[in-house]
Structure formats: structure tokens, C-alpha cells
Amino acid sequence: MLDDRARMEAAKKEKVEQILAEFQLQEEDLKKVMRRMQKEMDRGLRLETHEEASVKMLPTYVRSTPEGSEVGDFLSLDLGGTNFRVMLVKVGEGEEGQWSVKTKHQMYSIPEDAMTGTAEMLFDYISECISDFLDKHQMKHKKLPLGFTFSFPVRHEDIDKGILLNWTKGFKASGAEGNNVVGLLRDAIKRRGDFEMDVVAMVNDTVATMISCYYEDHQCEVGMIVGTGCNACYMEEMQNVELVEGDEGRMCVNTEWGAFGDSGELDEFLLEYDRLVDESSANPGQQLYEKLIGGKYMGELVRLVLLRLVDENLLFHGEASEQLRTRGAFETRFVSQVESDTGDRKQIYNILSTLGLRPSTTDCDIVRRACESVSTRAAHMCSAGLAGVINRMRESRSEDVMRITVGVDGSVYKLHPSFKERFHASVRRLTPSCEITFIESEEGSGRGAALVSAVACKKACMLGQ
């Protein structure tokens, strides 16, 4: 009897593995994704193909990295998701002549009506938060230079001027797309009239992360975010950046690689679950690469896999709870928690219980395998993109072996128990001629924006502006 049951459990697990095998990517698959990513990057950089390229390769006008001589107080704003952060950054000489960066910050959550109302409502709310922060720190009387981390696709015309191309991540505030974001912020500050600010720089969160990590390690020339969304930036040779005049030196390019796949480059790798996630998203047909990796989508992918296993009578005796059938019910943090389970399955059992399920031991094991399959594919897909960037940098610099540091931020990278190990191992397999160091950014977005502002202020002083 026991043997029969054991055989049935083994057969069930084997069927589960057959279904989950769809998520496995072979090294040849990853090399294919990497080569296609490089081709799209090239198209994004070139003037004649930029418009139709899915990977936009947006110039950021960040050319210099901090040298350690900029000092002063800077205000930093960070808008990239449902939370908005205001930070005071003091850049100065530390002990023994070292450079020191001290920060104080406060988080504000953005109400739904500000995210989806008008641009005026959104930026009025942001300036209200700045006003509140300055009151708390008794700094209303000071006109501070301000660095703005704005983590949406922007076409820069200068370091302090950028046109919002399109909202992502659930934002829909009308009247912002096609307009200068810094102008919208300046107008809102003017409307309030109770404080003055000098907006000197606007950067993407990947750029802010790279600059913040450069402060720790001067070989950091790539910034990457794996959180709600997924994106990367890197220092490109100016001669390859056709959208900006000049051939000397390097400029940081914001790849906006989340949109890779929007022209069909990933079609052969998309599964039924991916198509369902895409169809029910706020932007169907867009940001397809990001939807395979980002935390906004990972939990939902797992939920759809679990429903398939229920329908195949391989999980929960073929019956799903009402909660499990509800879109968004299986949160991405559950994926991390399930994979963090120590082996007694308590954590998995508790999560499934909150979803109205009474799982068996085998159910718990199957749910864990589903989570591992989805998150491992995410790590491997992400590795193909980064390997594409790094191999490109090595080739354009004609280096036999390139040493490089990548600064990384984002909740999936930082909080998932195995993502970074799987990701690092896969990147290294795909970049055999590179020695890569990964560092995690601390308060990256805010500190990085302030350091970019410090560079901009120093330049302005040198130019006598």
C-alpha cells in the first residue's frame, strides 16, 4: 500500500517536472537572447534605426563620474514606483581627507489618484512632500541643488532636461508624456511658492545606482535594477552614441532593455503563462523582457503555473481556492519566502493557508518547484541581457580580458534567497573573457542622484555659470 502511494507521488512529481521543464533555458538559448539583445542595442544607438529599435539606448548626458572633490548639501528625489523618497545628502571631506556622503531620508507613498490623475496632481503632491521634508529638517530658507531620480523612459536633451516617452509600472498621470519632466517639477514648486529649489540633474535609477557604486569602486561602469521592473545602464564610447554629437570619451546610456521583445525577438521563448500575464497587464505587448524578470510579474506567473497544475490534477487534489483564482493573489514576496523555507515546509504551508488552501507535504514541495522554475528562468533571462552589455563593452574597448564592476539594486536581487547566485553564475558562463565584480548599492537611487548633481554643480562652477 505504502509502495503504491510512494509510486503515485513519484509519478505525480515526474509529471510536474515535465510541465515545469518549459521554463528551462539551455545555454544556447541564452546565447541567442544575448546576441539578439546586442543587435537591438546597436539599432538603438544608431541614428537611422533608433526610432524602430525596441531597446532605445537613451543617452543620459552623464559623462563624468564623481571624483571626490564636490562638497555641499544636496536634496535628492526618487520616483520610480508607488513609494517616493526625499533625501538630504551631505557631501563633504571625511576623516583623513576621505570623501564622505551622509544621508537623511523619508519615504512617502503615492496615492492612487496622483498616479493615475493628471501630471499637475502628481507633481503638486511631490512638491508637497518636499515642503514637508524641508519643514522637518528646518531647511526651507536654503535654496538647495536638487537631483531627481526618475525611473521611467526619458529622452534627455541635457542633464536637466528630459522628455517622458511613456509611463510604465502602473503610472498613468495624463499630460506628462511628451513633456519635460524637470519643467513639470519646477512648475509645481513655483505653484507652491513656499520654498526654492535648483533642479540641476535628472537621472534614471540605473544611472543613480551606477554612480553610487562608483563611489565604492571606481571600476563600476554598469548599473542595473532588478526590482519591480528590470533595466540597466553602462558607459558607452561616445563615438557609438549617434544621437549625441561628439566622439570623445564616454557617456552613460540608459538601455531601457525592459522593452526588448516588443518587436518579436522573444516570441519563441514566451510561454502561455507569459501571454496571460501580458494580456492582463496595463501595457499589453510592451516591456516583454521586463515581464519575464521583474517583481511586478513574478508572483503572478507562479500563480498561473499553480492553476495549470491544479487543472492537471497534480496539486491540491485538483481544487483551487477562490483566493488562488484571484489575479495578483500570489505576491512576489511569497516566491522569495517559499524558496527561503528551511525544509520543514512550515513557511510554505503558512503562505498557502493564507490563500485558503490546506496543502499536503507533496503540495508544498511542488509549489516550491514552481517558484524555483519561474525565478530561475528570470535570473537566466536577466543574465543574457547583462552578458550582452558586458561583452559589447569588452569588444568596443578591444580588451582581451576586461575587469568590470556592476552596481545592482532592486528588491528581487536583494531579497530573493537564490536569485543573485543563479544570476551571477549564468552571467559568468556567458562572459568567459571578463572578470566581473557585483556590488549592491546602498540607498543607491538617492545618493547617486545627489552625486550626479554634485558633478553638475562642479561643472557649472568651472564653466562660470
Score class of each variant (00 low, 15 high):
383 S>I: 02
416 H>S: 15
125 Y>R: 13
394 R>T: 09
205 D>V: 01
133 F>W: 03
360 S>I: 05
31 K>V: 07
407 G>R: 03
370 A>L: 05
338 V>F: 01
332 T>Y: 10
8 M>T: 12
447 R>L: 14
93 E>T: 07
243 L>M: 05
327 R>M: 07
346 K>F: 10
188 A>K: 02
330 F>S: 01
274 D>R: 00
157 E>I: 13
285 G>C: 11
185 L>S: 01
401 V>C: 07
242 E>I: 00
451 L>Q: 15
154 V>A: 05
447 R>G: 12
356 G>W: 01
442 E>L: 12
455 V>L: 13
355 L>G: 02
408 V>P: 02
281 S>F: 04
149 T>R: 14
267 D>L: 06
460 A>F: 15
330 F>R: 00
378 A>E: 04
133 F>Q: 05
180 N>I: 10
338 V>M: 00
168 T>N: 14
278 D>S: 12
375 S>R: 04
282 A>L: 15
98 Q>V: 07
202 M>V: 02
78 D>E: 10
394 R>L: 08
5 R>Y: 11
39 K>A: 07
98 Q>N: 10
267 D>R: 03
322 E>I: 12
380 H>R: 12
123 F>V: 07
369 R>C: 02
348 I>A: 03
439 I>C: 03
352 L>A: 01
252 C>S: 02
58 L>G: 10
439 I>S: 08
440 E>M: 12
431 T>I: 11
141 H>P: 04
139 M>P: 03
400 D>C: 04
347 Q>G: 08
177 E>S: 13
335 V>D: 00
214 Y>E: 01
197 M>Q: 12
394 R>K: 02
290 E>H: 14
37 M>A: 01
344 D>E: 07
7 R>H: 15
133 F>E: 06
135 D>V: 04
176 A>V: 09
153 P>C: 11
416 H>A: 13
437 T>S: 08
32 K>R: 05
118 T>N: 06
100 S>F: 04
197 M>V: 02
9 E>G: 11
276 L>E: 09
179 N>M: 05
318 G>K: 01
114 A>C: 14
103 T>L: 06
303 R>N: 01
301 L>E: 01
49 T>N: 12
203 V>S: 00
373 S>K: 05
362 T>S: 04
364 C>M: 02
425 A>Y: 10
427 V>D: 00
256 E>S: 13
420 K>D: 11
247 D>H: 01
103 T>I: 08
262 D>P: 08
308 R>K: 02
431 T>D: 07
178 G>K: 15
57 M>K: 00
70 E>C: 06
290 E>K: 15
350 N>D: 15
441 S>D: 08
132 D>I: 10
297 Y>E: 07
9 E>D: 10
58 L>E: 06
107 M>D: 07
347 Q>V: 10
206 T>V: 05
133 F>R: 00
145 P>V: 02
289 Y>C: 15
89 V>G: 01
202 M>T: 02
155 R>E: 12
361 T>H: 15
88 L>D: 14
431 T>K: 06
100 S>Q: 09
349 Y>M: 03
309 L>R: 00
12 K>A: 13
108 Y>A: 02
179 N>Y: 12
81 G>W: 15
161 K>E: 09
445 S>K: 07
462 M>D: 08
384 A>M: 09
19 I>W: 08
165 L>D: 11
449 A>K: 07
335 V>R: 02
129 C>F: 05
76 S>K: 02
346 K>I: 05
66 P>S: 07
398 S>W: 05
437 T>F: 10
426 S>V: 13
80 G>F: 12
77 L>I: 07
143 K>C: 07
409 D>V: 06
408 V>Q: 03
140 K>E: 07
412 V>P: 12
394 R>M: 05
170 G>S: 14
152 F>M: 10
38 Q>C: 10
152 F>L: 12
73 D>N: 00
339 E>L: 01
254 N>T: 06
300 E>F: 01
128 E>D: 14
263 S>E: 07
148 F>D: 07
341 D>S: 01
253 V>K: 01
448 G>Q: 12
141 H>Q: 12
42 D>S: 09
361 T>D: 08
230 C>D: 07
91 V>M: 04
84 F>K: 01
84 F>D: 00
40 E>L: 06
181 V>G: 07
417 P>S: 12
436 I>N: 10
147 G>H: 03
156 H>S: 13
204 N>F: 05
153 P>E: 11
183 G>A: 06
19 I>C: 09
263 S>T: 08
319 E>H: 11
265 E>M: 11
94 G>E: 03
351 I>T: 02
42 D>I: 09
101 V>M: 11
252 C>F: 00
440 E>H: 14
320 A>E: 14
310 V>R: 07
138 Q>M: 13
379 A>V: 06
219 Q>Y: 06
150 F>L: 14
416 H>C: 12
100 S>C: 07
31 K>I: 13
273 Y>W: 13
354 T>D: 07
51 E>F: 12
317 H>P: 10
388 G>T: 13
332 T>I: 11
458 K>L: 14
200 V>I: 05
146 L>M: 10
125 Y>V: 10
347 Q>K: 09
239 Q>T: 14
81 G>R: 15
162 G>C: 12
281 S>R: 07
140 K>V: 06
51 E>C: 15
121 M>A: 12
428 R>S: 15
146 L>W: 09
459 K>M: 15
376 T>L: 10
405 T>Y: 01
374 V>D: 00
349 Y>R: 04
372 E>L: 03
98 Q>M: 09
276 L>P: 08
170 G>C: 11
411 S>D: 09
133 F>Y: 05
354 T>K: 11
135 D>A: 05
433 S>T: 08
372 E>G: 02
73 D>I: 00
163 I>V: 12
335 V>A: 08
66 P>A: 10
291 K>T: 09
231 N>F: 02
340 S>E: 06
25 L>C: 07
178 G>F: 15
28 E>W: 11
42 D>V: 09
159 I>E: 14
418 S>D: 11
180 N>V: 08
314 L>Q: 08
156 H>A: 15
34 M>A: 03
198 D>C: 01
162 G>F: 14
92 G>Y: 13
460 A>Y: 13
89 V>D: 02
364 C>S: 05
434 C>L: 07
286 Q>F: 14
247 D>R: 02
7 R>K: 14
99 W>S: 08
252 C>L: 04
151 S>I: 04
111 P>K: 13
132 D>N: 05
92 G>V: 04
455 V>E: 12
436 I>Q: 02
38 Q>L: 04
246 G>I: 02
271 L>Y: 02
342 T>C: 04
274 D>G: 02
69 S>K: 03
5 R>G: 08
150 F>S: 13
318 G>F: 04
246 G>M: 08
278 D>V: 06
259 A>N: 10
354 T>A: 09
422 R>H: 15
30 L>W: 10
153 P>S: 11
179 N>Q: 14
122 L>K: 06
267 D>E: 05
110 I>K: 02
373 S>N: 04
315 L>C: 10
59 P>H: 00
419 F>A: 03
63 R>V: 00
435 E>V: 10
88 L>K: 03
280 S>D: 10
415 L>I: 09
90 K>H: 04
119 A>E: 10
354 T>G: 08
179 N>I: 06
91 V>N: 01
142 K>H: 10
430 L>V: 06
284 P>G: 14
8 M>E: 11
245 E>D: 09
380 H>N: 14
90 K>L: 04
423 F>R: 00
157 E>A: 10
271 L>C: 01
328 G>E: 06
127 S>L: 06
307 L>I: 05
228 T>K: 04
257 W>E: 00
187 D>Q: 07
72 G>M: 00
262 D>K: 11
321 S>M: 08
134 L>Q: 04
411 S>L: 06
147 G>L: 02
428 R>P: 13
375 S>H: 01
121 M>Q: 02
82 T>D: 07
41 M>G: 02
376 T>G: 08
215 Y>A: 00
238 M>N: 00
120 E>M: 13
381 M>Q: 06
166 N>A: 13
382 C>S: 06
407 G>A: 11
326 T>R: 08
216 E>T: 07
162 G>L: 13
151 S>H: 12
31 K>W: 05
307 L>F: 03
77 L>H: 00
438 F>E: 02
249 G>K: 05
